[in-house]
Simulated assay, not measured.
Amino acid sequence: MQLTTHTDYSLRLLIYLAVRDDDQPVQVGDVAARYGISAHHMAKVAQTLVQLGYIHSYRGRGGGVALAMAPARINIGAVVRQTESFKLLECFGPGSTCPIDPACRLKQALGEAQQAFVQVLDAYTLEQIAANGAELRALLGGT
């Protein structure tokens, strides 16, 4: 299974915020620069994470984004569920035009595999993913 760029960037932003030495807000553009990715896309990701309640956004001088809760309370499986569409095939959504949809065992097998994938992620929190914070900070240029 391949995650969308939106989910990838969501997880990257959360990791970046979790490994910071301080809890001061950080500019979204700075995070994007550290990862070498589009600031525009990272801004959209930040907006999504604000709406989902994972991060806070602060305006004005010294503004930016920061975690809205402790990393131990952020479940990776939940983040992936909320940022992914999980429409693996056309038949996973409403209005399937596939003639074998009602009897398709492939759809069932893929659905089970998808659920198993996310269930594994349910076992992890952001705190666990970012437990090697010093190493991650060094790789990100000392956040």
Rank of each mutant, 00 (worst) to 15 (best):
Q115E: 15
E127C: 01
L139G: 15
K107Q: 12
Y9G: 01
E135G: 08
E90M: 02
Y16P: 02
R81A: 03
L110A: 04
Y124F: 15
Q82G: 04
N132V: 08
S96M: 01
Y35Q: 02
A78P: 07
R137Y: 08
A131T: 07
Q51P: 00
A66K: 13
H56R: 11
L121H: 08
L106N: 11
E135W: 04
T143K: 11
R137G: 06
G141L: 05
S57A: 14
V26Y: 00
L13W: 01
Y9E: 06
A103G: 00
M69I: 00
G142F: 01
E127R: 06
L106Q: 13
I37W: 02
F86V: 01
I76F: 08
E90Q: 13
A103L: 11
Q128I: 05
I129W: 13
P102W: 04
Y124H: 14
D101M: 09
Q119A: 14
R12F: 02
V19G: 09
P99M: 07
G141Y: 05
V28Y: 01
E112Q: 14
V26T: 13
G95V: 04
V65Y: 05
I37D: 12
D21W: 07
E90V: 01
I15R: 11
H6W: 01
Y58F: 13
S38A: 06
R81P: 13
Y35F: 15
V118I: 15
I76L: 14
L140S: 04
T4S: 15
A32F: 10
L121K: 09
L88P: 01
V26R: 12
A130M: 07
Q27R: 15
V80N: 08
A70F: 09
K107G: 02
G63E: 02
V28C: 04
L89R: 13
A39I: 00
G62S: 07
L11G: 05
D8A: 08
Q47V: 04
L126C: 10
I15V: 15
Q115L: 10
A103Q: 06
A113F: 03
A46H: 02
T5F: 08
Y54I: 09
V31S: 11
A43G: 09
T97E: 13
G142H: 09
T83R: 01
L13M: 15
G133S: 15
G60H: 08
L17A: 09
F117C: 03
N132R: 10
S85R: 14
L88G: 07
D30I: 06
E90I: 00
A39G: 12
V79T: 05
T48K: 09
E84H: 00
P94W: 00
Q108V: 12
R105L: 15
F117W: 13
G29I: 03
I37L: 10
